[in-house]
């Protein structure tokens, strides 16, 4: 496409983190929406509840983010009409992958993490690139602060090497409240150095009891 210009995309920044535990999943993202050195709003939720036990956190270009969320929400509605049940997290994960790949040659400029509980009630995290390749992991982070946070998670969560055979479960050994505290710390740290991360942190905890939401103020500078 000769006419493609870089103007069709914009990076509105933001960071997403998700941690899966044995019986919970924590998904978090900051609420800053910016472009370049300019902040659009300090209170934009990047997390979208897609099903009872499935939430999506995205960063990247906000226009694509919202289009993607609406697209998935509509598909999930149709799924519910047809199957009379909520979509499972692994099913949603595949749907998201296909939805992203469908636009392989004019991608959604979004970086996604899908978190929730699988059909056994175990925490699950799926991490994506913009064109749909994905992997189930125990924890992940994406977005402008991703590179700052990932090594901290690697260090703290000590996930078993994926090279080990037979494969071992990737869920983290932390308790739910420990995971929430860790998320708060990594965001406070990322906010110090990443200008695109800040203002407020939205944390979603998915467990057997349902979905819980909490907020934490971050630096606004």
């Amino acid at each position: 496409m000769a006419l493609r210009g870089d103007w069709v995309y914009e990076n509105n920044g933001g960071t997403c983190v998700a941690i899966a535990g044995l019986d919970y999943c924590v998904v978090a993202a900051d609420t800053r929406l910016s472009v370049g050195y300019s902040i659009h709003t300090r209170d934009y939720s990047k997390i979208c509840k897609l099903a009872d036990k499935c939430v999506l956190a995205s960063s990247g270009f906000q226009g694509d983010m919202k289009a993607l969320q609406k697209n998935l929400a509509a598909k999930h509605l149709i799924y519910q009409h047809q199957h009379n049940k909520q979509m499972s997290c692994p099913a949603m994960a595949r749907l998201l992958s296909n939805t992203l790949y469908y636009k392989r040659f004019f991608p959604y400029y979004t970086f996604n993490i899908l978190g929730g509980l699988d059909s056994e009630g175990k925490g699950c995290v799926y991490t994506y690139d913009a064109v749909g390749s994905y992997e189930r992991v125990g924890y992940s982070c994406q977005g402008t602060g991703g590179a700052l946070i990932m090594p901290v998670l690697d260090n703290q969560l000590k996930s078993p090497s994926p090279l080990l055979l037979p494969t071992r479960d990737a869920v983290t050994p932390l308790s739910e409240s420990e995971a929430v505290d860790l998320v708060k710390d990594v965001f406070a740290s990322a906010t110090e150095r990443d200008i695109y991360t800040g203002d407020k942190l939205e944390i979603i905890v998915v467990n057997a009891a349902g979905i819980r939401q909490e907020f934490l103020d971050l630096r606004k500078d």
Partner: peptide, 11 residues
């Protein structure tokens, strides 16, 4: 607000 390429938000 809505931008040229579809960025939108409320405030």
């Amino acid at each position: 607000m809505v931008g040229m390429i579809g960025t939108h938000y409320e405030d």
